[in-house]
Design a protein around this nucleic acid. Structure first.
Length: 569
DNA sequence: GCCGTTTTCGGCCCGACTGTTTTCAGTCG
């Protein structure tokens, strides 16, 4: 029995129980059990006594064991018989939860979007206790939008909106301090909405200005401390603003940064000490409420080091405190090993890119323009590559305290050959190989291409190994565990491409690479100077996978880097 | 449903907002 199926089944049971209006704690017990399984690294067969896992007891273990033995769950079957499937999508309607849907089903027999709409139109809903004309109206309105509303939006799309809102907040004089929070601050690939914390003494003024200045499609809530709006940009985006006092800012920021599981863990910890955490501060055993100047101080109050937002996920981060010091940070980065110039499809010259790297405080970098196969990107022939190399070396002469290396981002061709001969490659300092074509080949062919590249003695790194674009395309579906093993075998680097469109390798694969001690290079793949900023998102993303600083090639000194690349010659 | 030696029962993170009420339940994050 596959673990994923067990997890899915437990979650499904939770969903159906919720639709029956069951005790919310019982519902969440099934979700917790699913979560406990997910967080445990072992496969099902490796776990001898499942009830030893925290969160799995007699009831949920019975479900799991039945699944293992028979492949089915009788409890789920019973639930499926008792609760119509059509109710499940209705849980997505804002304002309708399990209890209300259970009531609609038991009193009016509502079991689908269609019957719900009919009941609204017949004005049956408002007759029920707990419902009224407004609920009915709202349900009708939400039904119209069901399916239209985008579920989760990718980080590269939300980033621009966040920047725009930040610019707006800077112009409002009554704003004392602000920060984005939520999953965006934790650098999740996708987020359902954007959260902002704003410190102010005049919430009503802020509310006024925000509602006026933003392109608001719909106001979901507008209270004294919380404003929730739907913005109408290309896609509709939910944005929540929490208005707090300056004193409350740090705890509010922590609270609304989450994750939910992290907060639960923190609150348990507080409770063990007789304290109580809320967004407004930490209530002491004697009832007084402490506030903090920063999140650092908040954590210090619980004798914890600062836990970066990026790793605040499952709550397990509280057991990995000694690893926090080994996390890669932006400050530790001294190089960028993948960028383009006007020689191929970049916007800036070698000199401009080099100087931008110096300005960022780096000690070295590699220019890696596309190779000849990529005609649309003006890829370089061996002849042009040689000319470019001279330009790079003359840049180095003019900048003695910085080192620019000559490289290439060479295409791995559809027929599993490389775009340059070995005698061209051996002249280069650093060789990146990557796939930009024929994504839909079968996996064996893709792996044959990658193998050709990774076993070549002159190739140092495989860039954006899967070719995915977050939320848009999956890439070329390589067998990443195999690629990681090859990287370990041949001593090659794998890239974490820091472009917010890519973030490739993904977290799961980065973790796998860590197990095999495969070095990772976090690279911006910048096609313009401004994109060198992607390094920040890249390092934060790497933190989410607990990537160790020492295994990040960009933290290595020029000397260390040179030693590494010369081994491959 | 799960958990626990200060508990085998009574908690389960906590609070805002809304729409329904006339003091609160449900939903949401």
């Amino acid at each position: 029995m596959n673990k994923k199926i067990v997890i899915k089944t437990l979650e499904k049971i939770a969903l159906y129980l919720e639709l029956q209006g069951e005790n919310p704690f019982k519902v969440s017990a099934f979700r917790k059990a699913a979560n406990a399984l997910e967080l445990d690294e072992r496969s099902l067969s490796e776990i001898d006594d499942i009830t030893k896992l925290k969160g799995i007891g007699k009831g949920t273990a019975a479900v799991i064991n039945e699944l293992i033995e028979t492949g089915e769950s009788s409890q789920l079957k019973e639930l499926e018989d008792a609760v119509p499937k059509g109710l499940i999508p209705l849980l997505k309607l804002p304002g309708l939860g399990g209890k209300k849907l259970a009531k609609l089903y038991s009193e009016l027999g509502i079991d689908s979007a269609e019957s719900l709409r009919a009941a609204c139109e017949a004005k049956e809903i408002q007759k029920l206790a707990g419902f009224g004309p407004k609920s009915e109206e709202k349900i009708l309105k939400e039904l119209e939008q069901l399916g239209n509303r985008s579920e989760r939006l990718p980080i590269w799309y939300l980033q621009q909106i966040v920047i725009d809102i930040e610019e707006l907040l800077k112009t409002i004089p009554e704003v004392q301090k602000f920060s984005v929070a939520g999953s965006f601050r934790r650098v999740n690939e996708m987020s359902k909405d954007i959260d902002f914390i704003v410190a102010t003494e005049q919430p009503e003024k802020i509310k006024e200005q925000l509602l006026e200045e933003l392109s608001v499609k719909e106001v979901v809530a507008a209270g004294d401390t919380k404003i929730s709006v739907v913005l109408d940009i290309e896609d509709v985006v939910n944005v929540d603003f929490r208005l707090v006092s300056l004193a409350e800012f740090a705890t509010a920021l922590h609270h609304f940064t989450g994750s939910k599981d992290h907060n639960v863990r923190m609150r348990q910890l507080a409770k063990e000490q007789g304290k109580k955490i809320s967004e407004y501060g930490v209530e002491q055993p004697d009832g007084t409420v402490l506030t903090f100047d920063s999140e650092e101080q908040f954590f210090a109050h619980f004798n914890l080091p600062f836990i970066p937002p990026t790793v605040r996920e499952s709550g397990k981060e509280l057991e990995r405190l000694d690893e926090l010091n080994n996390l890669v940070t932006l400050e530790a980065i001294v190089s960028d090993l993948h960028m383009h110039t006007t020689w191929s499809d970049g916007a800036h010259t070698v000199k401009e890119m080099g100087e931008a790297l110096i300005k960022r405080g780096y000690t070295h970098g590699v220019i890696t323009d596309h190779s000849q196969y990529l005609k649309v990107a003006n890829g370089l022939t061996p002849e042009r590559l040689e000319k470019q190399r001279l330009e790079i070396y003359s840049f180095n002469e003019a900048h003695p305290n910085f080192r620019l290396f000559a490289g290439t981002e060479m295409d791995i061709l559809p027929n599993a050959t490389l775009d340059f001969e070995d005698d061209v490659l051996k002249e280069l300092d650093f060789v990146i190989a990557s796939i930009h074509s024929s994504f839909s080949q079968p996996q064996e062919k893709i792996m044959e291409r990658l193998y050709t590249a990774i076993q070549n003695p002159y190739v140092h790194m495989i860039a954006h190994p899967t070719g995915r674009i977050i939320g848009q395309r999956d890439g070329y579906n390589p067998d990443i565990p195999q690629l990681i093993k090859w990287a370990a075998q041949f001593g090659k680097i794998l890239e974490l491409n820091a472009s917010p469109y890519r973030l490739d390798l993904c977290i799961e694969h980065l973790m796998m690479a860590m197990e095999y001690n495969v070095p990772i290079a976090i690279n911006t793949d910048a096609h313009a100077i401004e994109q060198l900023l992607f390094m920040e998102i890249g390092t934060k993303y790497a933190q989410k996978a607990w990537v160790k600083k020492d295994l990040v090639v960009n933290t290595w000194s020029v000397k260390q880097f040179e030693t590494f690349i010369q081994q491959n010659k």
